[in-house]
């Protein structure tokens, strides 16, 4: 059960192959111990806010520490997920890293305007990921430690 422990990373990615490559890369560096993969925007929101098939877990809700968010996804796309996460005071502070096909993508700018914290051009490799995290000042995540206030 993903919620039984604190979820560190929520990966929202519709492409199973992209997700597999991302998870594999993170695992290789021992960073995917508490990673949950959801396959579209709707599932991502359900997971974060304890709705839909995750409604039974609503009481024990634990917000992920980092969201890796693909933009182009079926049903609810990444931009809509980002909007909802950033407009809810409970989830407002969760860092969101956008996964994009190209840094020239017009949606990247849009995501920044909506409060995205960083972006990674796919495929996700360790160097890119680490760079993103480090720039966010969330290096602690790599070390499995809580933030130092």
């Amino acid at each position: 059960m993903p919620h039984s422990n604190t979820v560190e990373i929520l990966l929202a990615e519709d492409s199973l192959h992209d997700a597999e490559l991302t998870i594999r890369e993170l695992k290789k560096h021992n960073m995917a111990n508490n990673l949950v993969h959801v396959k579209d925007g709707e599932e991502a929101l359900d997971f974060i806010f304890g709705r839909g098939k995750y409604v039974s877990l609503a009481d024990k809700i634990q917000f992920p520490k980092l969201i890796l968010l693909d933009i182009q996804m079926p049903k609810v796309n990444g931009i809509e997920v980002l909007k909802e996460v950033k407009s809810d005071p409970r989830t407002h502070n969760i860092p969101v890293v956008i996964l994009t096909s190209s840094k020239e993508h017009p949606d990247v700018q849009r995501c920044y305007e909506l409060g995205a914290n960083s972006y990674i051009v796919k495929p996700v490799n360790f160097e890119g990921f680490a760079e993103s995290i480090r720039n966010l000042g969330f290096y602690w995540l790599l070390l499995n430690q809580p933030p130092v206030k």
Partner: peptide, 13 residues
């Protein structure tokens, strides 16, 4: 830009 890249990422990855 989006759809043609996805399979390429798969192949390379």
């Amino acid at each position: 830009s989006h759809d043609l890249r996805a399979p390429l990422r798969g192949i390379v990855g």
